[in-house]
Design a protein around this nucleic acid. Structure first.
Ligand SMILES: [Mn+2]
Ligand SMILES: [Mn+2]
Ligand SMILES: [Zn+2]
Ligand SMILES: [Zn+2]
Lengths: 142, 142
DNA sequence: TATTTGTTGCAAATAATTCGCATAATGTGT
DNA sequence: ACACATTATGCGAATTATTTGCAACAAATA
């Protein structure tokens, strides 16, 4: 969805203070090319053969990229994590409680809600990111 | 936080169409007695000795109770699930990106946001539950 | 280029969660 | 209370997801 050139990705990595490696570029590129938040399994499956990346490397890089704020880690109660690019745009997920269907909705800000929540908080003064998963049955599963 | 009598819990189980067993009562009671969303490990640790419940039983029951809508399953990127009672009250979580601190904020509805999101959706007509985790650094970790 | 420091592959280890199966307990209808 | 069908449980083993140790290797910097 977000199409980054290799040069863009290099800049992103450098700005984040991360070394630029082919593997990181391949992972970011792979994540950015799919519409749905991707699973580790899918990345391993795609990149192991093509780029000869080990799964430990993928896990380690996903962790680095996540900590650096370049990707988001999402949980849909599937028993495994999903990842998507951290675009800056707000993004929330509709998740089917029955099948693997998820639908990403972008562009609806909840900053005011978060502001209210922060006001009530005793332990937090500010926040960095958030994730919201909304569960229900998709059309096929109703 | 929500104090349920044993009789209340029995009613909850029956209404949900689940059999009433001592183990389920113990699990629900245990979850309802703590303020923070509880981990499976904590439940196993608490209930294995006292009630002699096997961990497989705990996992199976957490799944049933979750599917029946009696408990919520929460993910804080800790690598394990947390559970809390499904109270009907809205509940969102502030989660520290650095330590295990979480803070539950109740009473701030986001129904209107969800309505907007649903309006944009192509795959979902209605939803059942949602969960929102807001990440940042807690006071201790700033 | 030399040095430093972060990255990778490989194999093995952990951690979280699930399963198979025999036995026991629950709910329902006599 | 009794019998039956159905679901729950313990125990051990299996699966999955994710992490780690370590030696070899590559990126950044001067
Ligand atoms: Mn999935
Ligand atoms: Mn935790
Ligand atoms: Zn579905
Ligand atoms: Zn903290």
């Amino acid at each position: 969805m977000a199409f980054y050139s290799k040069e863009d990705l290099v800049v992103l990595l450098k700005e984040a203070g991360l070394r630029v490696t082919d593997h990181r570029l391949a992972i970011l590129s792979s994540i950015s090319r799919v519409r749905q938040p991707v699973t580790v399994y899918e990345l391993v499956d795609t990149l192991r053969k093509k780029e000869n990346i080990d799964q430990a490397t993928i896990y380690r890089n996903l962790s680095s990229l996540h900590i650096a704020g370049l990707i988001r880690r999402l949980d849909f109660n599937h028993g495994h994590a999903h990842y998507e690019l951290e675009t800056g745009r707000v993004s929330h997920q509709l998740v089917c409680s029955n099948c693997e269907t998820i639908e990403k909705i972008e562009g609806i800000s909840i900053d005011d809600v978060i502001k209210k929540i922060l006001k009530k908080s005793k332990k937090f003064k500010q926040t960095t990111t958030h994730s919201m998963e909304i569960y229900g049955l998709c059309k096929n599963c109703v």
